[in-house]
Simulated assay, not measured.
Amino acid sequence: MATIRDVAELAKVSTATVSRVINSNGYVNDETKKRVKEAIEQLNYLPNDVARSLFKGRSQMIALFVPDITNPFFPELARAVEDVTNQYGYTFVLCNTDNDNDKQMDYLSALQQKSVDGFIMVSSSMTGEHLQHIQVPIVALDRIISPDMSSVTVNNRSGSRQAVQYLKSVGCTRIAHIAGPEHVDNAVYRMRGYLDEVKDEDWFNSSYVVSGAYNFDAARKAAMNLLTRHPEIDGIFAGNDLMGAGVLNAAASLGKKVPDDLAVIGFDGITMGETVTPALTTMAQPIYEIGKSAAEILINQIGTSDSGVVTEEFNVQLIERQSTLRKAETYEQ
C-alpha cells in the first residue's frame, strides 16, 4: 500500500507539500499541485484519516451518544443526525451507552484521541462537571444536561398536559400514568404535566402513577398490576410509545378492550405506534427535526468556534389513532 512518502518521492516534493495538497491547506503552486495529484492517482494512494486529523487537528467526525439503541425512538433520531452530518461531509459515529457513566467516559476518551470534532449527547447521567474537560462542542439532545450547554428538546410538560386533557375530552374519568425513569428529566416533566391535570381531581389516587422505566416489558408488568388493583381506570397516559405498546399488551392479556374499556395515549410518535394493534394515539415529537436541529447547531459551533449556548424547544403534536379514537366517537354521540 502506497504511503505519503511514496507520493512525495514520485512527485519530487516534501511530505509536507503532499499534505498541503491533500488538505487544501496552505499555498502550493499549480504545477506542483498537478504533479502531486498525478502521483496520488498513479499510486492509488488513500490518505490516512488519522494522519490527516493530526495534521488538521480535526477528523470530520461527529459522535452521537444514545442510552438505549433498542428503543425505536433513538434509531429514528440517529437517522436525522446521520443525514445532516453526511450532508456536511462528516463521518457519523453512533455510541450506545446504556446511560452508564463509565461507558460514556470510555467513549469520550477514545473519541477524543481520534480528534472527534463534536458530540451530540442523549444522557441522563452525565453532568456539566463530567464534561467540563471536553475541548470540542457538545449539544444535548432530548434532555438537558446543563444550562451552560446547547440543547434541543420538546415541550414535555405542556405536551403531557395536552395528552391528559385529551383523555378527559374523550370521556375518561380515572386516568393513570405509566412514568419513565425518575432520573430522566423528560420523564419527570411528563409526569409533572400529568399531575398538573389530575392532582386536584377528587378521584385522583397517588397509586395511579407507576414506573415503566421507558421499557416495554417493565411497562407491561406495571400496567398488569395497576389495572388488576384498580379496574376502574379507564385511561392511561404512557410516558413514551414503547411503554404505551406495553400497556396495550397488558390490556389484551386482561381482556380489556381498547379503546372501549381503556383509552391509551403515548408520547414520542415513533413508527412502531402505527403498527401495533390497536394503533397507538400519541403526542408526537418532530423526531427528525430535533435530530436535524441538534446536528446543525453542532456543525455551526464546530465551524465558527462559537461557544454560545443555543436552546431550542419544539412542540409535540397530538396524533389520534385507534387506541382512543373509538372512545372519542362514542363519547361525542
Results as ranks from 00 to 15, higher is better:
Ser211His: 09
Ser206Trp: 10
Gly128Trp: 08
Leu195Met: 10
Leu195Glu: 01
Asp142Val: 14
Tyr90Trp: 03
Thr91Ile: 15
Tyr107Gln: 04
Arg161Ala: 01
Gln132Val: 14
Asn99Glu: 14
Gln135Tyr: 09
Asp106Trp: 05
Asn96Glu: 03
Ile144Cys: 07
Gly193Asn: 00
Ala219Glu: 06
His130Glu: 06
Leu195Gln: 07
Phe204Cys: 05
Val154His: 00
Val136Ile: 12
Val164Thr: 01
Gln162Lys: 13
Asn155Glu: 10
Ser160Ala: 06
Val188Met: 08
Ala187His: 03
Asp117Trp: 03
Leu167Val: 02
Phe119Ala: 02
Tyr194Phe: 09
Leu108Phe: 08
Leu141Val: 12
Val136Thr: 05
Asp200Met: 12
Asp202Glu: 15
Asn155Phe: 00
Asp200Leu: 15
Val164Ala: 00
Met126Asp: 04
Cys95His: 04
Met126Ile: 13
Leu131His: 09
Asp142Thr: 15
Pro137Met: 12
Pro147Cys: 13
Cys95Gln: 05
Ile120Cys: 07
His130Phe: 09
Gly118Tyr: 06
Ile144Ser: 08
Thr153His: 01
Ile134Pro: 05
Glu182Cys: 10
Glu182Arg: 14
Gly212Trp: 09
Tyr208Phe: 10
Ser158Asn: 05
Thr127Ser: 10
Gln135Asp: 11
Asn205Asp: 06
Leu195Cys: 09
Ser124Val: 00
Gly159Arg: 01
Gly118Trp: 08
Trp203Glu: 06
Gln104Glu: 12
Ser211Glu: 12
Leu94Asn: 07
Gln165Thr: 05
Glu182Thr: 14
Lys221Met: 14
Leu131Ser: 02
Val164Cys: 01
Tyr194Val: 02
Asn155Gln: 08
Ser150Ala: 12
